[in-house]
Design a protein around this nucleic acid. Structure first.
Length: 191
DNA sequence: ACCGGGATGTTCT
DNA sequence: GAACATCCCGGTG
């Protein structure tokens, strides 16, 4: 059973750590979410929506439980889960997964990955591994229409998740809005 | 292990 | 025209 709409319709700072150890599935591929970052609100200069809604960020301002996918550095797609109430701008960036199923398909899509722990150890890596791209933008994670869902398979979030500032930013570095599963081998950085 | 540079093109000022 | 929520490869230690 996919997570319900209400799971996402909360403050992004609550949803982000709660997403740890949930399982993201798309097509034949599944992976456990082990690293996330929160974005949004009126005081986050790193949020894509900080200066108001644009065509790109429309999904991020929309109803919760949908996927916000953006293109960056001329070649990479990154995936977020939209949070909060409809009209708010908030989302959780998925930064790393532990591959669980469909590894053959992931290896095909990620030929540069030397080891399986490199398949999904970064926001653009996991998007590539699962086949997330512009066509996936706005997909609803609640219900199984798009073939994409996030499920709880019984493993709870860590009682004491790792926490740090967000990675790769020039603004908003004072906020510790990154969470991860401590000691996990599949993180984008050693934790 | 760590570091530096190049790839590549959309988005917004 | 600059910035960009990144990744990969090749260098050095």
């Amino acid at each position: 059973m996919p997570l319900e709409r209400g799971f996402y319709a909360r403050n992004v700072l609550e949803v982000a750590p709660d997403l740890l150890n949930k399982v993201l599935g798309l097509g034949d591929c599944r992976g456990r979410i082990v690293e996330v970052e929160a974005y949004g609100g009126d005081d986050d200069p790193a949020s894509h929506g900080f200066r108001g809604m644009t065509p790109r960020t429309e999904v991020m301002f929309g109803p919760p439980g949908r996927l916000y996918v953006y293109f960056t550095y001329g070649m990479h797609w990154c995936a977020n889960v939209v949070c909060g109430a409809d009209g708010e701008c908030a989302a959780v960036l998925l930064r790393a997964l532990t591959p669980l199923a469909g590894l053959d398909r992931m290896r095909e899509r990620r030929p540069a990955a030397r080891r399986d722990r490199d398949l999904c150890s970064g926001p653009a890596k996991l998007s590539a591994a699962l086949g997330i791209d512009g066509a996936t933008n706005g997909a609803d994670l609640v219900g199984t229409d798009g073939g994409m869902e996030i499920v709880d398979d019984g493993i709870p979030p860590p009682t004491n998740p790792g926490r740090s500032t967000r990675i790769g930013l020039t603004a908003g570095n004072d906020l510790s809005w990154r969470w991860y599963v401590p000691g996990c081998a599949d993180l984008s950085r050693r934790g």
